[in-house]
């Protein structure tokens, strides 16, 4: 087991190295000179050249890459071109907000989505199931930024129940979390339903029924345990999409999190911020996926034994299919 976790951690290194390379190359091929952007159109060519030299933009790509990695290893993501503040400080300050937003919405969607999925699958092909699944598809198809605006309009402006932006009080978290959780809940419910339906057809469920267990025990003791594995995978994948979604949600609800920071970095072409932001969010995502995989290996002996024998093997990552 330890060896498995160790292997997975080692695999994380090339992935993160790769991401930083991709980001660096992307910024490199971007049209427009960051130094020129920073100084404005009035600056002389001399000033621009000096700043480029100072920022190290004139060095070849491999040199900049190694320097970037070296700095990251020393806990330094550079300073923002706009605010001149160290990016690590800014990120640390903003990180809790994003973490809070993302985890609250995921908890909410798990708490709602799993029971809905179970309910729908135990009432398969009845009107209850059909309604629940149609509603779920409806929610998956709703643009969350649009839903967010409509909720602000209804609960913030019209009814005045909740603040329209900011998270100064706990009430401020309600709308953003609901907006983010809506689609995720529906995704989880759909996955839960289809997995449970698949499991219910297995022989061991028939056996459980045949030996006279109550339907509740069959579903919860035998069905759910086996159906949960793909659902957990989807929850891992959902974490990634909610990190992406936090970009927009944080801007709409003015939550001072990482998403908002990255968006402002993108708008200002503040490339160290973009670099650092993508790296941090991707690392978060990679760690969650790792945790999910470890959780699996703990839950499912089949996966564990597969890794015990063949250390380089890997499970298929669901969540891609969402």
């Amino acid at each position: 087991m330890l060896r498995y976790i160790g292997n997975r951690l080692l695999l994380l290194i090339p992935v993160l190295l790769g991401i930083s390379l991709v980001v660096l190359v992307l910024i490199d091929i971007t049209p427009g000179d960051p130094a020129r952007m920073l100084l404005g159109a009035q600056a002389t060519q001399q000033q621009v050249d000096d700043l480029r030299e100072e920022l190290g933009l004139n060095d070849p790509l491999p040199v900049r890459y190694v320097r970037f990695i070296w700095n990251v290893l020393h806990g330094d993501l550079g300073t923002s071109l706009m605010t001149k503040r160290p990016i690590v400080d800014e990120m640390l300050q903003r990180f809790p907000y994003t973490l809070m937003l993302v985890s609250l919405s995921i908890v909410l969607s798990v708490l709602l989505g799993i029971p809905i999925g179970i309910y729908a699958s135990t009432h398969q092909n009845t009107w209850k199931d059909n309604t629940a699944m149609f509603l779920a598809l409806f929610c998956v198809s709703m643009p969350s930024f649009w839903f967010a605006l409509l909720m602000i309009r209804l609960f913030g402006v019209q009814l005045r129940w909740l603040p329209i932006s900011g998270v100064a009080t706990w009430k401020g978290w309600i709308l953003p979390c609901i907006a983010m959780a809506l689609g995720l809940t529906a995704l989880i419910a759909r996955q839960m339903r289809s997995d449970l339906l698949e499991v219910i057809r297995q022989d061991y469920i028939t056996t459980a029924r045949a030996k006279g267990l109550s339907e509740g025990k069959v579903i919860y003791r035998h069905g759910l345990k086996n159906a949960m594995i793909p659902v957990i995978m989807v929850i891992g994948g959902v974490f990634g999409s909610s990190l992406g979604g936090s970009l927009i949600a944080e801007v709409i609800y003015s939550i001072p999190g990482l998403g908002q920071y990255i968006m402002s970095g993108l708008n200002n072409r503040d490339y160290p911020v973009i670099q650092g932001g993508i790296l941090i969010l991707s690392t978060m995502f990679a760690i969650v996926i790792l945790l999910v995989d470890v959780l699996f290996a703990l839950v499912d002996p089949r996966i564990r034994s597969q890794y015990a024998r063949k250390s380089k093997g890997r499970g298929k990552r669901v969540g891609d299919e969402t």
Binding site: V22, G245, I278, F285
Partner: peptide, 25 residues
């Protein structure tokens, strides 16, 4: 190919799209 895809997928999809779109203009 699979290692490349691992790198690809380690970035949240929408974040990647937003960054690409912002960088290309």
């Amino acid at each position: 190919c699979m290692r490349l895809l691992d790198i690809y997928q380690a970035m949240p999809m929408f974040l990647l799209c937003v960054s690409l779109a912002a960088i290309m203009g």
